[in-house]
């Protein structure tokens, strides 16, 4: 049995590795003249400021040149949130637990050493800082490193931190129900799509930010378009994280839940 597994692994690795070594068809690493480094990339690098008004080239590619891809990428996030809700909405009627009785795990971690830190005070200091940083990352996405996904993930993680520390009844601002969070998660990609539809309204093609009907110059319009798109991504990612967390929290109960 064990030998068979080892042989399987060896065969798999051989089958996959041999063609890559034998053919030598791929470009050399780091060669500036190889096909991927020279065909369309130079255009992106040279025109990112003049066309998209965005020094960060990765941002200009994912939300301007290939914005259509990223719209569906955000939709994938939303879709996974909805799928988790649907899959976890049913419970099994009976359970075939004939093999393994569940043994509650008893671990002794010693005396608690966190008693001296007041979590409620610390959380009220840390959370606003993270949120401000998230907003900074969101609005500076096209200038330096960052963007909608990172901002959304930061806000979502703040919510997670809040859930872990603050008691449930004390949370009022940051308390989303499952229905609300999933419907807001849907509006995130919708805001993104609206950014594309604005181009249609201005008489251009879909996702053409230059056609947005606002009385400002073309590079500025690209900035506006990128901002709309980034806000949509942020909202989508943030609420998807909250949705998945909620869907799991509604289902499980922890043994130290006392509120």
């Amino acid at each position: 049995m064990q030998l068979r597994r080892v042989i399987t692994v060896l065969i798999m690795v051989t089958i996959l590795v041999v063609p890559f070594v034998a053919f030598r068809v791929l470009p050399e690493i780091g060669d500036p003249n190889s096909a991927p480094n020279s065909h369309v990339t130079d255009y992106y690098i040279e025109h990112t400021i003049s066309e998209c008004n965005s020094p960060n080239m990765v941002t200009s590619i994912i939300v301007d040149y290939r914005a259509f891809d990223t719209m569906f990428e955000t939709t994938v996030m939303f879709l996974s949130g909805v799928a988790v809700i649907l899959i976890l909405s049913n419970k099994p009627k009976k359970r075939d637990d004939m093999f393994r009785k569940f043994n509650p795990c008893t671990t002794n971690t010693g005396p608690s050493i966190f008693k001296t830190v007041n979590k409620d005070v610390m959380i009220s200091i840390i959370e606003p800082l993270i949120l401000i940083y998230a907003i900074y990352v969101l609005f500076h996405g096209e200038v330096s490193l960052g963007g909608g996904f990172q901002a959304g993930a930061l806000i979502g993680m703040t919510y997670l931190l809040d859930v872990m520390v603050v008691k449930r009844k004390d949370r009022d601002i940051f308390n989303y129900s499952l229905e609300r969070s999933v419907s807001v998660a849907g509006t995130g990609p919708f805001i993104y799509a609206v950014g594309g539809i604005l181009g249609l309204i201005g008489g251009g093609l879909f996702m053409e930010f230059e056609a947005i009907p606002l009385p400002i110059e073309a590079p500025e319009l690209h900035s506006i378009g990128i901002l709309i798109v980034e806000v949509g991504v942020t909202v989508g990612v943030m609420c998807t994280i909250i949705t998945i967390l909620k869907a799991i929290m509604d289902r499980v109960s922890f043994d130290d839940d006392n509120d």
Binding site: N37, T41, Y44, I45, V58, I61, D69, T70, E73, F149
Partner: peptide
Amino acid sequence: NPLPHGLMLT
């Protein structure tokens, strides 16, 4: 090359 990085984010 920024293109593979953008694609891999997706």
